[in-house]
Design a protein around this nucleic acid. Sequence first.
DNA 1: TCGATATGCTTAGCATACTAACTAATTACT
DNA 2: AGTAATTAGTTAGTATGCTAAGCATATCGA
Lengths: 138, 138
Amino acid sequence: MIEDEIREMLDEISTKKRRNYSEMLRQIDLHIGQDQLLCRLWKEDGITQTQLSERLNCEPPTIANMVKALENYGLIYRQRDALDARVNRVYLTPKGQDIKEPIEKVWRKQQDKLLDGMSSEELLLLKKLLKKMADNLS
Amino acid sequence: MIEDEIREMLDEISTKKRRNYSEMLRQIDLHIGQDQLLCRLWKEDGITQTQLSERLNCEPPTIANMVKALENYGLIYRQRDALDARVNRVYLTPKGQDIKEPIEKVWRKQQDKLLDGMSSEELLLLKKLLKKMADNLS
DNA sequence: TCGATATGCTTAGCATACTAACTAATTACT
DNA sequence: AGTAATTAGTTAGTATGCTAAGCATATCGA
């Protein structure tokens, strides 16, 4: 069945991409996923932890741990919301802003490797098909 | 850049698929990844831990932990190799064999959801493009 | 106004997954 | 034959990711 093959290949891509990614991020002293959180803050600095968990498709406790780690690294800091004392707002430190370029370099390297040898029509098709899958999972 | 969009979409698919998968596997009392290990044993019962780590694209310590867990669940058992006392060979128990069907059901459910609304030409194309990415990552 | 409910986050515990450092067994080489 | 190198697994420690349970703070409704 072609459906089985596609599922198996997606699993293979996920794990290999993860390993690959992880290795590259280690060179800039980050763990996998931390780049995604920082990326979110480039776009929405001062976002709450709950919002982060929604954006990154993971649960609040996961965010709590990641935020704690990134805070210890000095890449982000937290500030209690003035209007709602339950809310933690997360902000980038200067160090957290500076790491944007190295991260984007890692991303480019990753996608160059992943998409090597694909024509622009293939890229367009791929994008369309991936979009469909992503929507199916929502 | 379309390359960025593709990378982002792949990340999204990976995490969403993982969450989805995880949830479905929980209903048959398995954790994510354990199905993959069992699947390997259906194909190659009595394989060594090192071979498992190669097949599943992960490191030996990861396999050691997974094998320990699955052994505790009573789904697999280990036997020291007769010719090489360093080697652990991993075998399915009857209970481990019986769980094949429920797992395959989860997979079918997952791929049905993922590939919903795709024509057979799209599936063929998708397979081709995924194959290319998987090869690029090797 | 006050009790019930909802919301934001944390803690505890478990699983995958990694690296680094280790033990034990085997093989290779001098 | 005896030492060195290799191979197979394990252990310790750290990170993401989850659920379940708990703690504040806020809000809603009688």
